[in-house]
Design a protein around this nucleic acid. Sequence first.
DNA 1: CACTTGACCTGTCCGC
DNA 2: TGCGGACAGGTCAAGT
Length: 290
Amino acid sequence: MPELPEVETIKLGLQKRINGLEIKKILINSQKSFIGEPGLVKNKKVINIWRRGKVLGIDLENNLSLMFHLKMSGQLILVKGQKDPLGENKFMGGHPTKDMKGEMPNKHTRIEFLFSDGSNLYFNDQRKFGWVRVVATNKIEEESFFKKLGPDPLGEKFNLRELKDNLYKHPKTAIKVAILDQTVVSGIGNIYACEACFLAGVDPRKRVGELGDEEFKKLYQAIIKVLKNGIKYGGSSKTHFVDAQGNKGFFLDHAFVYGKDKKDCKKCGVKIKKIKLGGRGTYLCPNCQS
DNA sequence: CACTTGACCTGTCCGC
DNA sequence: TGCGGACAGGTCAAGT
């Protein structure tokens, strides 16, 4: 599920709500979802929450961090305790299946964190691909996982030059497959890759080596724009995604191609086509993207 | 090196 | 209604 905008949306939701709170208890319902020693983070205060690419991090006061990757179906939902200073205890329910009414925990709740104010953070993950791990805060950059990670497209250092250099390492790869590669640029997933190619007017099947300067520039701008738009609409809720308060996101209502198979292109009226590229469903407008 | 397939899991949807 | 197959926001590893 979550790509950069979804993880960012969760981050923003958690930032104001759990910063300064202490983790009082951890319940692990799925062993494989939690990597590390839970006892090490018990009774520790949250001091910072960050995101890089699709990874969310919670820093604790003792130089340890919790790192989350939500993969396809992960959710992080905070249900406030009795105290609710922000008056935002309007839990809408993060239910991935019809038979669930949004009560927490549910049968997909893999990890539960109880905080000092009575709030509960639920890590739900239907498919169990996601994980939480305990890492030393000052060693995160050395993690093999992070070393390989390309620049975050919403980071200050991200620029056209770097994107181009990284893309050029894969001259024969289809451009959409290339921007999905997290070592090229981090945070783009299938939805936003399709949308970025559309906004840039580039056929996703076109090889990196076939792109001209103007196309690289358009793509660079499209990536930033589409991700910012994703955040603006609170992310994409195709099936699972909900933010930290359990609310859905509405980016897909504003999408041009993703999931619009056989519908008319909003720009030119031609039917949107669905193809398979790099093993993933890929949507494009045959007229707008060349 | 590029591309495909399968694996990891659970669930939905569509066609017969 | 049941059953089989394809597919789903992501990443890895292995094989061609």
